[in-house]
Design a protein around this nucleic acid. Structure first.
Lengths: 138, 138
DNA sequence: TATTGTTATACTCTATAACTATA
DNA sequence: TATAGTTATAGAGTATAACAATA
């Protein structure tokens, strides 16, 4: 066989990363999708829940319960949009920003350890290439 | 933000690859795990079903039904191990090898198109680094 | 008529427990 | 008693349909 399937390689590394992240997140009382939501909201607040669901490629009906819980913990707030009373703007609270920062620091440390075996050149190329491969099809 | 989460990048690329592979496999009447099983068996026949399940990180109880179907299609055979009548050796048939080769060719073409935007150097570095990151922890 | 948020439901995927036949 | 294969069952994750409120 000339080389392994790209899909198998990526799937395996993704699984490995998830396995490493899950306990770190659990220590901060977060699940994977909680972290994805908080990260997305840190980039920019969501004008609607639907927009948030689409931005993270998550089902809008499952997002409801997830936001319920995160809001219950005070990590985010849902505010009625004054210009469209159907929509609810989703925004991180300071507590949400703190929780995200803590979790992210743990995850970064784990990632750095994983990347530690790479040379500077390899590391730079990898990150650059991943960004492009992850991007929407041109 | 300094850079994106590694997990998010890999998860996104993995999803993209799966989305691209699924219809190619469906055209060959295969599902993702069918392909994983056939690929594994092409590398080496499995001395037991349990060993096969572990090799591809799949649940042994789900593997049963999957092997039933693949055997029903004549893509593999399960032979009793003469030295241990509990065990069943799993082996690709010529038909299984052909089906795998067809599917693999389709997938390789898709992957090459995806990698097409990379320079030779980037491509070489990527594959080398992925191999290492996918490897078992040292 | 279309859209946001929501609930309820069904479906798929995955994991657990228990059985049988061998060892 | 321990293991390979199997079956049945339960659970988590995911997707579909339908509803109320609003545009």
């Amino acid at each position: 066989m000339e080389r392994q399937d790209l899909g198998a390689l990526f799937a395996r590394i993704t699984r490995r990363l998830i396995d490493a992240e899950t306990p770190l997140l659990a220590a901060r009382d977060l699940k994977m999708w909680d972290y994805v939501v908080l990260s997305q909201l840190a980039q920019q607040e969501a004008p609607t829940q639907l927009a948030l669901a689409q931005a993270i490629a998550y089902d809008k009906t499952r997002l409801i319960r997830l936001l319920d819980d995160l809001e219950g913990e005070g990590l985010l707030v849902r505010e009625a949009d004054p210009t469209d009373r159907r929509a609810r703007i989703v925004r991180l609270t300071p507590a949400g920003e703190r929780r995200l920062a803590q979790a992210r620091a743990d995850i970064r440390a784990m990632e750095e350890e994983l990347l530690g075996e790479l040379s500077d050149r390899e590391r730079k190329t990898l990150l650059s290439v991943l960004q492009r491969l992850a991007g929407e099809p041109a």
